[in-house]
Design a protein around this nucleic acid. Structure first.
Length: 564
DNA sequence: TCGGATTGCCGAAGCCTGTCCACACAGGC
């Protein structure tokens, strides 16, 4: 068993303990252990298998969790978890994912009504039975019903980082190329499609220790679930001469394929997953690579990220496709957190990790004071931090650190810190973290006012969405984008796999309205810094070139290009 | 439950605000 799966079991246990009303410190220990193991490069299984090693040497792993780990590796669970699963249905955990329901309420629902599925819960709300309980009412019933509907919509979809990790593990093993929505860079993915010409690939796939529940196992296709999360993976055998055609077909999108086939028909060809054929005599014209198919159709090569039938075929025909930004174009990361607020590392550790990635500059942007739970900085701490950074830079380090802040935008659009303190800092990201369900007009005014603040260089995670979890807040995007363009405030493309915000349609729109962009990670740990390539993928889906993105510039030009 | 001290026990602890219902719970990164 791999570390992420072990971490998931520990975190799930913590959820159950919370429902059970256990000692908060105990719960916290499980959460901490889960997060430590999740990010650890070394396998827990290897450490436990080595008699010379002691896993309790790892910070946060004591005797209790060490013994749980041994049990988990041996049989997938441990006594404490078994005991709780005997008392609460595993579906209780699903209920925790419905906004408005926390551990206390879930427990009450179970004790009062034996609610064990979301179906039960929905019925209870529809029958207006929830309101019979103390401190519950019509509003909550409505909220829960909405939450369930939303949850069902997103169920069965996975975040891009999860699917990428699985693809990175399986693809080399099977000699396969990922296709489907992962290849297009969609922010969430329903299932993973892998194409291969390697002879024993299907066999290898089905024998893989983490593959289970085979749904199909023919000679051309195998389909099964992978890992504890149950991501569906489809592996297809494709003859080498059809690989390009199959890649085209299985990468999609469906609308793009339809348009591409129409183009083929117009030129007297037929296009399918086996190749491009002349209609008159059924001769194969192309099929081994996508490039030769596109070329035969008189098109420039269309990068997968653009294949949404949003004008890419016309652009490819007229040679007006943009030269899309590449991960190697990125020179800096302008949004990250340290232990000063809710990050896990010091600013020196973040700087070292960023340097290792090849960045030339970073901004440290911890939270501001109104985000109390994150220990946000007040004016005094912010100014002191700016001084500390000046001192750091005085040593002429290879990587330049900018003193920054992710400053909360208050409800009325004012900044959380005084202008004087903000002016001391090199780089201010302005973000919304509260009052996310304002009426659109009020939210628009709020953002417009935030942009007025002279220190603000970029609008952080501009729609506030959290994938599979929370919708974007509502405002008049065009109005804010026009103002941002006029004031020289950039839009962030937040690369955190949970956010990926802005997303493609709004990136494209903002660019049309004259906006510039900054691709940042919002890292809370050194390992998050490598997420910038997800942001680059979003930028590509938004048709951006390096010249649209300010942090592709060398430091001096970057500083000159941001508002000042 | 962990870690560290006091070695069989104690301290740890993001906190503030809105919602919905009647004071507690959930949510914010």
């Amino acid at each position: 068993m791999e570390n992420p799966e072990i971490a998931r079991i520990l975190a799930e246990t913590a959820d159950l303990m919370e429902i059970d009303g256990e000692n908060p410190f105990s719960i916290r220990s499980f959460r901490n252990a889960a997060s430590t193991l999740d990010g650890m490069p070394e396998r827990v299984a290897d450490i436990l298998a080595d008699p010379g090693r002691d896993i309790t040497q790892i910070q946060g792993i004591g005797k209790g969790i060490a013994s749980a780990l041994a049990d988990i590796l041996a049989r997938g669970s441990f006594p404490r978890r078994d005991e709780m699963l005997a008392r609460y249905p595993p579906t209780a955990l699903e209920m925790l994912r419905i906004p408005g329901l926390g551990p206390k309420t879930v427990r009450t629902l179970w004790e009062q009504f034996r609610v064990s599925t979301l179906e039960d819960l929905a019925r209870l709300c529809q029958e207006q039975k929830l309101r019979a309980l103390p401190r519950m009412g019509a509003k909550l019933e409505e909220k829960i019903l909405q939450g369930i509907a939303h949850y069902r919509q997103s169920a069965g979809r996975f975040l891009i980082n999860h699917v990428s990790t699985v693809a990175a593990e399986l693809a080399p093993l099977l000699g396969a190329t990922p296709a489907g929505s992962l290849r297009r860079g969609r922010e969430t993915v329903g299932d993973l499609d892998l194409l291969t010409s390697r002879e024993n690939a299907l066999e290898l796939f089905l024998q893989h220790p983490r593959v289970h529940d085979a749904l199909a196992a023919g000679s051309n296709k195998a389909s099964a679930r992978f890992g504890a999360e149950g991501l569906q993976v489809d592996v297809r055998m494709v003859p080498p001469e059809s690989l390009g055609a199959a890649l085209c077909y299985f990468t999609g999108s469906k609308d793009h394929n339809v348009a591409l086939r129409q183009r083929a028909l117009k030129l007297g060809f037929s296009l399918n997953e086996y190749g491009l054929f002349r209609l008159s005599d059924e001769t194969r014209v192309a099929g081994e690579t996508e490039a030769e198919i596109h070329a035969a159709l008189g098109l420039d090569f269309i990068p997968p990220e653009l294949r949404e039938n949003q004008g890419e075929i016309e652009a490819a025909l007229h040679h007006t496709l943009p030269a899309l930004i590449e991960p190697r174009d990125i020179r800096g990361d302008l949004h990250m957190h340290t232990r000063e607020s809710d990050g896990r590392a010091t600013f020196h550790e973040m700087a070292a990790a960023a340097q290792e990635l090849g960045h030339a500059y970073i901004a440290i942007t911890d939270h501001s004071k109104s985000l109390a739970m994150a220990n946000g900085l007040d004016e005094r701490r912010a100014v002191a931090f700016a001084a500390e950074v000046r001192q750091f830079n005085a040593g002429g380090p290879p990587l330049r650190v900018l003193s920054g802040l992710e400053c909360d935008i208050l409800r009325d659009g004012r900044m959380d810190l005084e202008d004087g303190a903000l002016a001391e800092l090199d780089f201010v990201v302005a973000s919304v973290h509260s009052y996310m369900s304002l009426e659109p007009a009020e939210m628009t005014d709020r953002l417009l006012r935030a942009i007025e603040c002279p220190s603000v260089k970029v609008l952080g995670h501009p729609t506030g969405r959290v994938l599979l979890h929370r919708d974007a807040y509502r405002y008049e995007f065009d109005t804010v984008a026009r103002a941002a363009a006029a004031r020289g405030v950039a839009f962030e493309i937040n690369s955190s796999p949970e956010r990926l915000d802005l997303h493609a349609p709004l990136i494209r729109r903002a660019r049309e309205l004259g906006c510039k962009f900054i691709i940042s990670t919002d890292a809370h740990h050194p390992r998050h810094l490598s997420n910038f390539h997800y942001g680059v993928t979003m930028a590509r889906r938004g048709w951006l070139s390096a010249s649209d993105v300010l942090n592709t510039l060398p430091l001096a030009e970057f500083l000159a290009s941001t508002r000042h």
